[in-house]
C-alpha cells in the first residue's frame, strides 16, 4: 500500500461554488466509502489466506469511478467496469454479496465459482463481466448501444466504460473508440491514468503529452480532470455524461491520479518512486472528499464516522454470510459452455 500523503488545509480544494453537483455528492461519497471499506476487507481476507487467485483494488480510484457511475442509471444505462472500479460498480448498484461471493468462490454468486475476483458482472442488467484483455469493453459497449439504436431504445441512454493508461496502448482501445466515434454513440470512455500499468510507468507506455490529446485524433470530445479531487471529478463526469446523453457523441475523460496500492495485493508497489508518493497525485481521494464534504457542510465528521461504521458492519455481515456458503463442487457443476447443450462435444 502506498503511504498516504497527509491532506493539509492548503491542499483542500476550497470552493463554495459546487456547480450543481452538491446534491450528487452524498451518493457519490457513499459509493466511494462502501467500496473502500469493502476493498480493505478483501485485502484482509487475501492476507489471511481466504481468497485464492488475487485481489485487485481500486484504492485511489474511488472518486473517479464512483462519480462516473453515479451519473448513470441502472436499468437504463450501461456501465462496463474494469479492474479498479469497485466504487463505480457499487454506485451502479452491484450488490455486496455479488462481490464477496465472487471473491470467496461461493456457488451462490453470479459467476458460480467459474470466474473470480473482478471478472464478474450482470450483463443483462447493463453491467458486463470484464475479461482480462484490456480495451475489449470499448467495442462491447459500442455494440450494446448500436443494438439499442436499431431497437429504437437508444434515446436518453449512455454507455460508459472505464480503462487505465495501459489499456490505451491496445489495438482494442483504438479500434473500439474509433468505431464508437464513427457511429457517434452516446458513450463515455473513462481513462484513469494512475501512472502505472502493473509496474510500467507512463514513459514506457505512451509518448503523447497527455492522453486527452488523443480525443481530437478520434474526433471525440475530451475532458481532463485531477482524479483525486471529488468535486472536480463530479463536475467533469456530470458534464461528460450529460454531453453523451444529449447527443454529443463519445466523450473521452482522462483523470490523473496515483494508484494507492500494488497492481494486486500480492504486489507491494515498491517500484513507485518516492517523489511520486510525495506528490499531489498521491493524495487519497477519500480524505480529499471528506474534507470537501465537511467544508461544504454536506456531512459532519461524526456523520462520516457513522457512515463508515455502518459500511464496515454491512461488509462484515456479507463476508460472514458468504463464508458459510458452499463452494462449487466439480461433480455438481454441469460444466456447460453453451446454451445449446446438445451441441456440446
Amino acid at each position: 500500500m502506498i503511504p498516504l500523503v497527509p491532506v493539509t488545509r492548503e491542499d483542500r480544494i476550497d470552493r463554495n461554488d459546487l456547480s450543481g453537483v452538491r446534491e450528487d455528492l452524498p451518493r457519490i461519497y457513499l459509493a466511494m466509502l462502501r467500496a473502500r471499506v469493502l476493498e480493505d476487507k478483501l485485502s484482509s481476507l487475501y492476507k489471511a489466506g481466504k481468497i485464492v487467485g488475487g485481489v485487485y483494488l481500486g484504492r485511489g480510484h474511488e472518486a473517479v469511478s464512483g462519480s462516473l457511475a453515479s451519473y448513470l442509471h441502472r436499468g437504463i444505462d450501461i456501465f462496463a467496469p474494469l479492474i479498479r472500479d469497485q466504487a463505480g460498480r457499487t454506485a451502479f448498484g452491484e450488490s455486496l454479496m455479488d462481490v464477496t461471493r465472487t471473491y470467496l468462490g461461493s456457488v451462490e454468486g453470479p459467476m458460480k465459482g467459474r470466474d473470480g475476483n473482478i471478472h464478474r458482472g450482470r450483463p443483462q442488467e447493463g453491467m458486463p463481466a470484464m475479461i482480462s484483455h484490456l480495451g475489449s469493453s470499448v467495442a462491447l459497449v459500442a455494440g450494446m448501444l448500436m443494438a439499442r439504436r436499431m431497437q429504437g431504445r437508444l434515446e436518453g441512454v449512455v454507455g460508459a466504460t472505464s480503462l487505465g493508461d495501459g489499456a490505451t496502448s491496445t489495438g482494442a482501445f483504438h479500434e473500439g473508440l474509433n468505431t464508437a466515434a464513427v457511429e457517434k454513440l452516446p458513450m463515455v470512455v473513462l481513462v484513469v491514468n494512475n501512472q502505472f500499468a502493473y509496474s510500467t510507468g507512463n514513459d514506457r507506455q505512451f509518448a503523447c503529452a497527455d492522453l486527452v490529446d488523443r480525443a481530437r485524433g478520434y474526433g471525440v470530445a475530451g475532458h481532463k480532470v485531477q482524479g483525486n479531487d471529488l468535486i472536480a471529478v463530479a463536475e467533469t463526469m456530470k458534464k461528460a455524461v450529460s454531453a453523451a446523453r444529449d447527443g454529443g457523441g463519445p466523450q473521452l475523460v482522462v483523470a490523473d491520479l496515483l494508484r494507492l496500492c500494488g497492481h494486486g495485493e500480492h504486489d507491494d508497489a515498491s517500484y513507485v518512486p518516492a517523489e511520486m508518493r510525495a506528490s499531489g497525485l498521491a493524495r487519497d481521494c477519500m480524505q480529499v472528499a471528506e474534507g470537501q464534504l465537511i467544508d461544504a457542510g454536506v456531512f459532519s465528521r461524526s456523520q462520516l464516522d457513522e457512515m463508515r461504521a455502518q459500511a464496515v458492519a454491512e461488509v462484515q455481515s456479507a463476508v460472514a454470510q458468504t463464508q458459510q456458503e458452499s463452494a462449487p463442487h466439480p461433480h455438481h457443476d454441469d460444466w456447460r459452455t453453451m446454451y445449446h447443450g446438445e451441441l456440446e462435444e
Binding site: P128, S136, A139, L140, M146
Partner: peptide, 9 residues
C-alpha cells in the same frame, strides 16, 4: 466486440 455487445442486447 460490437457484435458481441449487440448480441447481449
Amino acid at each position: 466486440g460490437v457484435a458481441m455487445g449487440a448480441a447481449l442486447e
